[in-house]
C-alpha cells in the first residue's frame, strides 16, 4: 500500500515498511506516524535517528534488546529501558521505530 508524501507516491510493503530504503525523508516518517495517530516529538526523533545511524554502520536493524542497551549507552540510562521505549513506540520499539526510520523490520522480529 503506497503512501503519499509531499506529492510523491512511495511504495511500502504489506506491513507498511518502505519498499525502497532510499525513499526515506523525515517527511516520510511524519506521514507514517500520522497514519498511526502518533505525533513525532524530539524524543521519538532521537530514537529514529539512532536507528538510522545504526543501520548505516551495521546494515541491520538491531533487535530490541540490542537497541535498548545501545540507547542506554548513547542517550543515558533513563532512556535505555523498555518502559521508556514502549511509551514512545507502543507498537513495539523495534517494529514501529524501524518503520518510521525507513529500515526493514528487525531481523528476527515476527
Amino acid at each position: 500500500m503506497p503512501i503519499e508524501v509531499e506529492g510523491k507516491t512511495i511504495e511500502t510493503d504489506e506491513e507498511g515498511y518502505l519498499a525502497n530504503l532510499n525513499d526515506w525523508t523525515p517527511a516520510v516518517a511524519e506521514a507514517m506516524a500520522k497514519e498511526d495517530g502518533t505525533e513525532l516529538t524530539d524524543a521519538h526523533w532521537e530514537v529514529i535517528n539512532f536507528l538510522r545511524e545504526y543501520y548505516d554502520e551495521y546494515q541491520i536493524a538491531p533487535a530490541v534488546r540490542v537497541l535498548t542497551k545501545a540507547i542506554g549507552k548513547k542517550l543515558g540510562k533513563e532512556k535505555g529501558n523498555s518502559k521508556y521505549l514502549y511509551e514512545l513506540f507502543p507498537y513495539g520499539p523495534g517494529k514501529q521505530a524501524c518503520k518510521y526510520a525507513g529500515l526493514p523490520k528487525p531481523t528476527g522480529c515476527v
Partner: peptide, 9 residues
C-alpha cells in the same frame, strides 16, 4: 559491516 554488530548481540 554486520559482523561488527555481533558484539552487541
Amino acid at each position: 559491516p554486520t559482523y561488527s554488530a555481533l558484539g552487541d548481540y
